[in-house]
Design a binder for these strands. Structure first.
Lengths: 125, 125
DNA sequence: TACCGATATGCACCGAACGACCTATCCAAA
DNA sequence: TTTGGATAGGTCGTTCGGTGCATATCGGTA
Protein backbone atom coordinates (compact mmCIF):
# COMPACT_ATOMS: atom_id res chain seq x y z
CA UNK A 1 0.00 0.00 0.00
CA UNK A 2 1.07 3.56 -0.52
CA UNK A 3 -0.01 6.31 1.81
CA UNK A 4 1.22 9.81 2.53
CA UNK A 5 3.22 8.37 5.40
CA UNK A 6 5.08 5.80 3.33
CA UNK A 7 8.16 7.71 2.28
CA UNK A 8 8.95 8.85 5.82
CA UNK A 9 8.38 5.67 7.78
CA UNK A 10 11.87 4.31 7.33
CA UNK A 11 13.31 7.42 8.97
CA UNK A 12 11.39 6.97 12.19
CA UNK A 13 13.35 5.73 15.16
CA UNK A 14 11.91 4.21 18.28
CA UNK A 15 13.01 5.25 21.74
CA UNK A 16 11.83 4.39 25.19
CA UNK A 17 12.84 4.84 28.76
CA UNK A 18 11.54 2.91 31.68
CA UNK A 19 12.39 3.89 35.21
CA UNK A 20 11.23 3.73 38.77
CA UNK A 21 11.10 6.45 41.34
CA UNK A 22 10.22 7.07 44.93
CA UNK A 23 7.19 9.18 45.80
CA UNK A 24 9.29 12.33 45.45
CA UNK A 25 9.88 11.40 41.82
CA UNK A 26 13.54 10.87 42.48
CA UNK A 27 14.77 8.28 40.02
CA UNK A 28 15.91 5.18 41.86
CA UNK A 29 16.26 2.74 38.99
CA UNK A 30 16.30 3.12 35.27
CA UNK A 31 18.05 2.05 32.14
CA UNK A 32 21.13 4.16 32.78
CA UNK A 33 21.63 3.02 36.36
CA UNK A 34 20.87 -0.55 35.40
CA UNK A 35 23.49 -0.54 32.66
CA UNK A 36 25.95 1.11 35.01
CA UNK A 37 25.44 -1.42 37.78
CA UNK A 38 25.92 -4.26 35.37
CA UNK A 39 29.12 -2.81 34.03
CA UNK A 40 30.47 -2.09 37.49
CA UNK A 41 30.01 -5.73 38.38
CA UNK A 42 31.74 -6.74 35.20
CA UNK A 43 34.63 -4.30 35.54
CA UNK A 44 34.94 -4.34 39.30
CA UNK A 45 35.33 -0.59 39.23
CA UNK A 46 33.10 2.47 39.09
CA UNK A 47 35.70 4.48 37.25
CA UNK A 48 36.26 1.85 34.60
CA UNK A 49 32.52 1.55 34.06
CA UNK A 50 32.11 5.32 33.77
CA UNK A 51 34.92 5.56 31.26
CA UNK A 52 33.40 2.86 29.10
CA UNK A 53 29.89 4.30 29.15
CA UNK A 54 31.10 7.87 28.74
CA UNK A 55 29.42 9.10 31.90
CA UNK A 56 31.26 11.35 34.28
CA UNK A 57 32.34 9.80 37.54
CA UNK A 58 30.80 12.70 39.37
CA UNK A 59 27.36 12.12 37.93
CA UNK A 60 27.41 8.38 38.36
CA UNK A 61 28.49 8.60 41.94
CA UNK A 62 25.57 10.91 42.72
CA UNK A 63 23.07 8.71 40.92
CA UNK A 64 24.11 5.53 42.64
CA UNK A 65 24.01 7.26 46.00
CA UNK A 66 20.35 8.10 45.40
CA UNK A 67 19.49 4.43 44.96
CA UNK A 68 21.23 3.39 48.13
CA UNK A 69 19.63 6.21 50.07
CA UNK A 70 16.20 5.10 48.94
CA UNK A 71 16.66 1.48 49.84
CA UNK A 72 18.56 2.24 53.02
CA UNK A 73 21.20 -0.42 52.52
CA UNK A 74 24.21 -0.73 50.22
CA UNK A 75 24.00 -2.14 46.72
CA UNK A 76 27.67 -1.55 46.16
CA UNK A 77 30.64 -2.88 48.01
CA UNK A 78 33.19 -0.12 47.66
CA UNK A 79 36.83 -0.34 48.64
CA UNK A 80 39.31 2.50 48.69
CA UNK A 81 43.08 2.33 48.68
CA UNK A 82 45.65 -0.13 47.54
CA UNK A 83 47.96 0.04 44.62
CA UNK A 84 45.05 -0.25 42.28
CA UNK A 85 43.35 2.61 44.10
CA UNK A 86 40.28 0.67 45.02
CA UNK A 87 37.45 -1.24 43.45
CA UNK A 88 33.69 -1.60 43.56
CA UNK A 89 31.47 -4.63 43.18
CA UNK A 90 27.81 -5.32 43.78
CA UNK A 91 26.46 -6.64 47.05
CA UNK A 92 24.06 -9.56 47.03
CA UNK A 93 21.18 -7.07 47.04
CA UNK A 94 22.75 -5.18 44.18
CA UNK A 95 22.94 -8.33 42.13
CA UNK A 96 19.35 -9.19 42.93
CA UNK A 97 18.19 -5.76 41.85
CA UNK A 98 20.04 -5.98 38.57
CA UNK A 99 18.73 -9.46 37.95
CA UNK A 100 15.16 -8.39 38.56
CA UNK A 101 15.58 -5.51 36.14
CA UNK A 102 17.09 -7.88 33.60
CA UNK A 103 13.98 -10.01 33.77
CA UNK A 104 11.80 -6.94 33.51
CA UNK A 105 13.46 -5.83 30.31
CA UNK A 106 13.25 -9.31 28.88
CA UNK A 107 9.53 -9.14 29.38
CA UNK A 108 8.95 -5.81 27.73
CA UNK A 109 11.62 -5.25 25.11
CA UNK A 110 10.24 -7.64 22.54
CA UNK A 111 6.70 -6.41 23.04
CA UNK A 112 7.68 -2.82 22.50
CA UNK A 113 9.59 -3.67 19.36
CA UNK A 114 6.66 -5.70 18.10
CA UNK A 115 4.27 -2.87 18.85
CA UNK A 116 6.49 -0.48 16.95
CA UNK A 117 6.58 -2.71 13.89
CA UNK A 118 2.81 -2.94 13.94
CA UNK A 119 2.66 0.84 14.25
CA UNK A 120 4.71 1.23 11.10
CA UNK A 121 2.65 -1.41 9.29
CA UNK A 122 -0.53 0.37 10.30
CA UNK A 123 0.62 3.62 8.74
CA UNK A 124 1.52 1.84 5.51
CA UNK A 125 -2.02 0.64 5.00
CA UNK B 1 8.90 -13.90 51.82
CA UNK B 2 10.86 -11.20 53.55
CA UNK B 3 13.94 -9.63 52.06
CA UNK B 4 15.82 -6.41 52.64
CA UNK B 5 13.83 -4.92 49.80
CA UNK B 6 10.43 -5.72 51.23
CA UNK B 7 9.65 -2.61 53.23
CA UNK B 8 10.45 -0.27 50.35
CA UNK B 9 8.76 -1.99 47.46
CA UNK B 10 5.38 -0.39 47.96
CA UNK B 11 6.95 3.06 47.56
CA UNK B 12 8.33 2.34 44.11
CA UNK B 13 6.53 3.96 41.22
CA UNK B 14 6.78 2.91 37.61
CA UNK B 15 7.30 5.42 34.81
CA UNK B 16 7.93 5.05 31.14
CA UNK B 17 8.10 7.16 28.05
CA UNK B 18 7.94 5.92 24.52
CA UNK B 19 8.60 8.20 21.62
CA UNK B 20 9.74 8.33 18.06
CA UNK B 21 12.21 10.66 16.45
CA UNK B 22 13.73 11.46 13.12
CA UNK B 23 17.40 10.76 12.54
CA UNK B 24 18.30 14.10 14.10
CA UNK B 25 16.74 12.88 17.34
CA UNK B 26 14.03 15.47 17.05
CA UNK B 27 10.94 14.09 18.76
CA UNK B 28 8.16 13.59 16.25
CA UNK B 29 5.73 11.51 18.24
CA UNK B 30 5.44 10.67 21.89
CA UNK B 31 3.05 10.35 24.74
CA UNK B 32 2.66 14.09 25.20
CA UNK B 33 2.00 14.85 21.55
CA UNK B 34 -0.27 11.85 21.27
CA UNK B 35 -2.40 12.95 24.20
CA UNK B 36 -2.45 16.47 22.83
CA UNK B 37 -3.58 15.40 19.35
CA UNK B 38 -6.35 13.31 20.82
CA UNK B 39 -7.59 16.14 22.97
CA UNK B 40 -7.43 18.63 20.10
CA UNK B 41 -9.68 16.36 18.08
CA UNK B 42 -12.05 16.07 21.01
CA UNK B 43 -12.11 19.77 21.82
CA UNK B 44 -11.81 21.13 18.29
CA UNK B 45 -9.29 23.65 19.56
CA UNK B 46 -5.60 23.80 20.33
CA UNK B 47 -6.09 26.37 23.04
CA UNK B 48 -8.79 24.41 24.83
CA UNK B 49 -6.61 21.30 24.74
CA UNK B 50 -3.61 23.20 26.12
CA UNK B 51 -5.65 24.65 28.94
CA UNK B 52 -6.95 21.26 29.93
CA UNK B 53 -3.57 19.55 29.87
CA UNK B 54 -1.79 22.47 31.51
CA UNK B 55 0.68 22.95 28.68
CA UNK B 56 1.48 26.38 27.37
CA UNK B 57 0.08 27.19 23.98
CA UNK B 58 3.50 28.34 22.86
CA UNK B 59 5.15 25.05 23.62
CA UNK B 60 2.42 22.96 22.09
CA UNK B 61 2.37 24.99 18.95
CA UNK B 62 6.11 24.47 18.51
CA UNK B 63 5.89 20.75 19.19
CA UNK B 64 3.12 20.11 16.73
CA UNK B 65 4.93 22.10 14.10
CA UNK B 66 7.88 19.73 14.41
CA UNK B 67 5.70 16.75 13.58
CA UNK B 68 4.23 18.37 10.52
CA UNK B 69 7.65 19.48 9.34
CA UNK B 70 8.93 15.94 9.60
CA UNK B 71 6.10 14.36 7.68
CA UNK B 72 5.84 17.18 5.20
CA UNK B 73 2.07 17.34 5.18
CA UNK B 74 -0.48 18.69 7.70
CA UNK B 75 -1.85 16.62 10.53
CA UNK B 76 -3.94 19.52 11.73
CA UNK B 77 -6.61 21.48 9.98
CA UNK B 78 -6.29 24.92 11.48
CA UNK B 79 -8.71 27.77 10.98
CA UNK B 80 -8.22 31.33 12.17
CA UNK B 81 -10.79 34.04 12.60
CA UNK B 82 -14.46 34.17 13.22
CA UNK B 83 -16.32 35.08 16.37
CA UNK B 84 -14.97 32.03 18.10
CA UNK B 85 -11.46 32.99 17.07
CA UNK B 86 -10.74 29.83 15.20
CA UNK B 87 -10.53 26.12 15.66
CA UNK B 88 -8.31 23.14 14.96
CA UNK B 89 -9.15 19.57 14.10
CA UNK B 90 -7.16 16.62 12.82
CA UNK B 91 -6.77 15.84 9.16
CA UNK B 92 -7.32 12.29 7.96
CA UNK B 93 -3.60 11.66 8.32
CA UNK B 94 -3.66 13.09 11.82
CA UNK B 95 -6.40 10.69 12.79
CA UNK B 96 -4.52 7.77 11.31
CA UNK B 97 -1.39 8.67 13.21
CA UNK B 98 -3.27 8.91 16.49
CA UNK B 99 -5.04 5.65 15.83
CA UNK B 100 -1.80 3.85 15.10
CA UNK B 101 -0.30 5.16 18.30
CA UNK B 102 -3.42 4.08 20.19
CA UNK B 103 -2.90 0.55 18.95
CA UNK B 104 0.76 0.73 19.83
CA UNK B 105 0.01 1.63 23.44
CA UNK B 106 -2.61 -1.06 23.67
CA UNK B 107 0.06 -3.55 22.73
CA UNK B 108 2.66 -2.45 25.23
CA UNK B 109 0.93 -0.93 28.26
CA UNK B 110 -0.28 -4.17 29.78
CA UNK B 111 3.02 -5.89 29.17
CA UNK B 112 4.97 -3.17 30.90
CA UNK B 113 2.65 -3.21 33.89
CA UNK B 114 2.90 -6.98 34.05
CA UNK B 115 6.66 -6.82 33.86
CA UNK B 116 6.72 -4.31 36.70
CA UNK B 117 4.59 -6.52 38.92
CA UNK B 118 6.90 -9.42 38.27
CA UNK B 119 9.85 -7.19 39.09
CA UNK B 120 8.35 -6.38 42.48
CA UNK B 121 7.52 -10.02 43.10
CA UNK B 122 11.04 -11.01 42.22
CA UNK B 123 12.47 -8.69 44.85
CA UNK B 124 10.13 -10.06 47.49
CA UNK B 125 11.49 -13.55 47.10
C1' DT C 1 56.33 4.25 55.17
C1' DA C 2 55.75 6.39 50.88
C1' DC C 3 53.08 5.99 46.79
C1' DC C 4 49.38 5.52 43.48
C1' DG C 5 45.02 5.32 41.64
C1' DA C 6 40.18 4.84 42.83
C1' DT C 7 36.63 6.37 45.84
C1' DA C 8 34.29 10.56 47.96
C1' DT C 9 32.41 15.21 47.71
C1' DG C 10 32.00 20.29 47.15
C1' DC C 11 31.19 24.06 43.88
C1' DA C 12 31.01 27.13 39.94
C1' DC C 13 29.66 27.12 35.38
C1' DC C 14 27.12 25.88 31.04
C1' DG C 15 23.46 24.68 27.86
C1' DA C 16 18.99 23.00 26.60
C1' DA C 17 14.27 22.94 27.71
C1' DC C 18 10.60 25.38 29.21
C1' DG C 19 7.65 29.31 30.95
C1' DA C 20 6.28 33.87 30.73
C1' DC C 21 5.36 37.69 28.04
C1' DC C 22 4.38 40.20 24.04
C1' DT C 23 2.72 41.20 19.55
C1' DA C 24 0.74 40.21 15.03
C1' DT C 25 -2.69 38.11 12.15
C1' DC C 26 -6.85 36.17 10.71
C1' DC C 27 -11.97 36.31 9.61
C1' DA C 28 -17.06 34.97 10.63
C1' DA C 29 -20.56 37.01 12.95
C1' DA C 30 -22.82 40.84 14.95
C1' DT D 1 -16.84 47.57 9.61
C1' DT D 2 -15.84 46.55 14.12
C1' DT D 3 -14.63 43.03 17.26
C1' DG D 4 -13.37 38.87 19.85
C1' DG D 5 -10.96 34.90 20.50
C1' DA D 6 -7.83 31.50 18.53
C1' DT D 7 -3.90 30.72 15.67
C1' DA D 8 1.05 32.27 14.64
C1' DG D 9 5.51 33.43 16.09
C1' DG D 10 9.57 36.27 18.31
C1' DT D 11 12.26 36.93 22.54
C1' DC D 12 14.17 36.67 26.99
C1' DG D 13 14.91 35.00 31.56
C1' DT D 14 14.87 31.05 34.60
C1' DT D 15 15.39 26.55 36.02
C1' DC D 16 17.66 22.26 36.48
C1' DG D 17 20.59 18.61 35.49
C1' DG D 18 25.02 17.68 33.92
C1' DT D 19 30.05 18.95 33.20
C1' DG D 20 34.43 20.29 34.62
C1' DC D 21 37.49 21.12 38.04
C1' DA D 22 38.88 21.15 42.47
C1' DT D 23 40.45 18.69 46.67
C1' DA D 24 40.35 15.19 50.33
C1' DT D 25 40.69 10.47 51.74
C1' DC D 26 41.81 5.74 51.84
C1' DG D 27 45.00 1.61 52.31
C1' DG D 28 47.26 -2.55 49.83
C1' DT D 29 51.65 -3.01 47.89
C1' DA D 30 56.39 -2.09 46.74
Amino acid sequence: METKFSNKLSDIRLHYKIWMSDDQETGIMGDGKWQMLKLIEEKGSMKAACDELGYTYRRTWGNLKKIEQFFGFPLLDKTRGGTDGGHTVLTEEGKRLVKAFDAFHNTVDDQIQLGFERFIQELKK
